[in-house]
Amino acid sequence: MSATSFALAPSAAATLPAASWSSTSLTLPPLGNLDAYISAVNRIPMLSAEEERECARRLRERGDLEAAAKLVLSHLRLVVAISRQYLGYGLPQADLIQEGNIGLMKAVRRFDPALGVRLVSYAVHWIKAEIHEFILRNWRMVKVATTKAQRKLFFNLRSLKNGLKADAAETRERLSPAEIDAIARDLNVRREDVVEMEARLSGADVALDPLPADEGEDALAPIAYLADHRHEPTEVLAARERERLATDGIEQALAQLDERSRRIIRARWLDVDENGQGGKTLQELADEYGVSAERIRQIEAAALKKLRKALEPYAA
């Protein structure tokens, strides 16, 4: 059975007034709204324990899709009930039900009647897991929890925060240090993890671009100072050209100088550290060659002129 074989969105369920499966059709005409869907699934008859085991056995042994449909349909009301627990996240209940239905189908596909438990107990985990994943994907633009531990902390912390606010009859958003310590003990997690997740819960999405209409003309949108320009095409090409000029170009240009001029240019400008320190002075080179500092300056100037001319093809 594929994961979408019996996905019953609120716009694709059926009115099933029958009181027993003997008169219930598995061909489902569309419904118009969520209330009609919920009313319909609440009228779908429940399977007895024996009927459930028989359907599960037929599905596992023969791949009987009609049996799978009965298992799914008879538990749609469970998905509706679970979805109500997550209405406080501001997401449409219809979407929560749809995701829960997918979790229900996954549970049906994996259910083993030999486990000795009813499908309703087995399916709760799968239904909640799909709804949790849907909430984490859509609650904020940036996903607030990625690891299994963060997911658990996200839902538990939000529930505990709401309980603390209700007990204290307060509307403040941030937790006090004492409340953070209490939640960390209750959930058996580090205090730092609670602080980090609470900050994510309290934050809000910020538009990167454009600026709100009431901002001044000189204001910068976040995209202006968050963007990384290092990988823009023009910057990449300029960096490649600088690298080529600093390696092949300079070496070939130096090769056109006489030995003394090349030694002076290297000692003055190339034999330096990353901070630009370490180059020799004109006087130091003058002492080395036994000439005046002015003569070294003249040689240097002439060599630099030759280098610029030799590097013109690379600059072009």
Rank of each mutant, 00 (worst) to 15 (best):
I135E: 09
L311W: 09
A221F: 05
A14H: 11
R268P: 15
E284V: 02
L187G: 02
T147K: 05
R140A: 04
R200P: 10
F134D: 01
G32C: 07
R185G: 07
A13R: 03
F111N: 09
P212K: 05
L187H: 08
G163M: 07
I102Y: 12
Q252A: 12
E232Q: 12
A123F: 07
G216P: 09
V108K: 10
Y37Q: 00
A40R: 03
I127C: 01
K152F: 11
E312N: 08
A68G: 14
A303L: 04
A219S: 11
E288V: 09
W269Y: 15
E300C: 05
G32M: 08
V80H: 11
L153H: 07
A129F: 08
L211H: 08
G116K: 01
A129H: 14
A81N: 14
E294Y: 02
D205P: 00
R84F: 04
R174S: 14
L160N: 06
E51S: 10
L87M: 05
E288Q: 05
H231W: 13
M46A: 12
S20L: 06
R230N: 15
L285H: 11
E274W: 08
V117F: 06
A145N: 02
G279M: 00
E51L: 02
N156P: 00
A255D: 12
P92S: 04
N275A: 14
A182P: 00
E312L: 10
A302T: 12
I82E: 08
D248T: 13
Y122D: 06
L211E: 06
A145H: 04
T15E: 08
E232H: 12
A238S: 11
A67M: 03
E217N: 13
I131Y: 08
M1A: 07
F111P: 05
R260C: 00
T27E: 08
A239E: 06
E217G: 15
R57S: 11
T27Y: 07
V195P: 00
T15N: 08
F134N: 03
I82W: 03
S74N: 02
Q150F: 02
M1D: 09
D214L: 08
A69G: 03
Q256R: 13
R244K: 08
M1L: 08
R62H: 14
A9C: 01
D193Y: 09
S23K: 13
R260M: 09
E312Y: 07
E99T: 02
K165T: 05
W126P: 01
I223R: 14
A145T: 02
V144D: 01
